[in-house]
Design a protein around this nucleic acid. Structure first.
Length: 458
DNA sequence: ATGTCC
């Protein structure tokens, strides 16, 4: 009998893999007949490839347009969602009023919810795993004092804290990282230590305002899992890509998934929960340090993720920029959720429930009406300072880098009243209190004076 | 969003 080699296995339709060596030796040493070989090779056959669905699974469209630009946006998010909804694992989904596209067609938009069966899709929670908002009620405290102290305590911009100003990384959390095969990584743990108590950049903020109901001063922070989550996301995408090749090559790369009923699936789900704990602590470190420095007791505190995966039975709800309304998606005993709009608008405190149309979610903000670049361009003929003063009159707005980030000013976002109106129209939560704006801190345009951006360079 | 590529 002729000896077999890897080329023969490839010709038979097998993907080159680690088992090739062992299988080739096994077959050749025993001089298996063709029939015996086929029986032996059965164990290495991949399950049949899953095709994309011929038609998109129906999804709820909780967004309406009020202008031509918005109409284009709606068409674009619906079109991309239609491709996402053809992924084999998908059973349902929804668009929120703040939806806007990101990435190429077939990528879940911001403001999108995609429900899958027995599958975790890292591309549907994306890099900032567990991006979230936390509120602390500080009582009757001067908001300016909170701003001044917060400015000293918090950390914005890329990277982490210097060693001498790091927060304590609890040993229970370290043990959790070390127990998980995705997180037990020296470099990742180093980042987990250094990034604790940091807020990053982009739309992340520290907001101070007063409750409309009680007049108490409230501190609200918005940020996610920083470099730690980004690292896990990358690992998740690599694992999902391996499964995509085995299970469904037709599936778009960005929609690759990790089956939950595998060792990788269980470990990835655990890793997401550990990152969630880290992120909660990331907020709490900053809030506690501010309350400590003021010398005030925390009256109450709550938080919610708006970029995460929620599980119910064998269904996985991927919320990429959507606020959980369904009670079982909230931390135990918690009844309120936070929906920020823009720096000049109140942060909404919302109650609500799961309905057929909302799939258990509400919007997570006002949504951009223009891309950052388009928005920057639209303000070109006026000075940044002038636009800033006009849009933030009577507010205490501070940029950590010292440079105004024009793309985070109120005009960069959709009209807050229209988002609130659409929440009513589509049954996406009910506003029970508002944190009225006093001021906020953001990263600012930290790239403005970067060496590679200076004029005169190629 | 992400020490904007380990």
């Amino acid at each position: 009998m002729k000896k077999i080699d890897g080329h023969i296995l490839i010709d038979m339709g097998f993907e080159p893999d680690a088992w090739f060596r062992e299988a080739i030796d096994y077959i050749n040493e025993r001089e298996l007949t063709n029939e015996e070989m086929m029986v032996y090779l059965e164990q290495f056959k991949s399950p049949p490839q899953l095709a994309l669905k011929d038609e998109a699974v129906p999804f709820a469209i909780n967004i309406e347009s009020e202008s031509e630009i918005e109409e284009e946006n709606v068409q674009s998010v619906v079109a991309t969602m239609q491709e996402v909804m053809r992924t084999p694992t998908v059973v349902g989904g929804a668009l929120m009023p703040d939806a806007c596209p990101t990435g190429s067609i077939g990528t879940i938009p911001v403001g999108g919810v995609v429900v899958t069966k027995n599958a975790i899709h890292p591309g549907m929670h994306s890099a900032d795993i567990c991006c979230s908002v936390m509120l602390t009620d500080l009582g009757e405290i001067d908001p300016k004092q909170v701003m001044d102290i917060a400015e000293k305590v918090t950390h914005f911009g890329p990277g982490g804290r210097d060693r001498d100003v790091q927060f304590r990384f609890p040993s229970e959390l370290l043990e959790a990282f070390e127990s998980n095969k995705f997180l037990n990584d020296k470099n990742l743990i180093k980042i987990a230590r250094a990034h604790l108590g940091t807020q990053g950049d982009g739309n992340h903020f520290l907001y101070v305002g007063k409750s409309k109901n009680t007049g108490n001063t409230m501190l609200v922070t918005h940020h996610g899992s920083r470099g730690v989550g980004a690292r896990l996301f990358k690992k998740g995408m690599i694992t999902a890509e391996k499964f995509r090749k085995q299970l469904s090559k037709e599936t778009l790369k960005q929609n690759a998934w990790i089956p939950f009923d595998t060792d990788e699936g269980k470990a990835y789900w655990e890793a997401l929960q550990i990152i969630r704990s880290w992120t909660k602590l990331n907020h709490a470190c900053i809030h506690d340090a501010i309350a400590d420095k003021i010398g005030v007791e925390v009256k109450s505190r709550f938080w919610n993720e708006h970029n995460f995966v929620f599980k119910e039975g064998e269904l996985f709800y991927h919320a990429k920029g959507a606020t959980p309304l369904k009670d079982s998606f909230l931390p135990e005993g918690q009844t309120s959720r936070l929906i920020p709009l823009n720096m000049a608008e109140p942060i909404l405190i919302v109650k609500g429930e799961h309905t057929v149309n909302n799939w258990g979610f509400a919007p997570h903000g006002a949504g951009r009406n223009l891309s950052r670049t388009q928005h920057r361009k639209s303000k070109e003929e006026r000075s940044v300072q002038e636009v800033f003063e006009e849009e933030t009159a009577n507010l205490d707005i501070r940029f950590h880098s010292g440079e105004i980030d024009i793309t985070e000013l109120p005009s960069a976002y959709k009209d807050a009243s229209s988002v609130r109106c659409q929440m009513k129209t589509f049954g996406l939560g009910e506003v029970v209190d508002e944190v009225l704006p006093y001021g906020s801190i953001m990263a600012g345009d930290w790239q403005k004076n970067a060496p590679w951006k200076r004029k005169g360079r190629r």
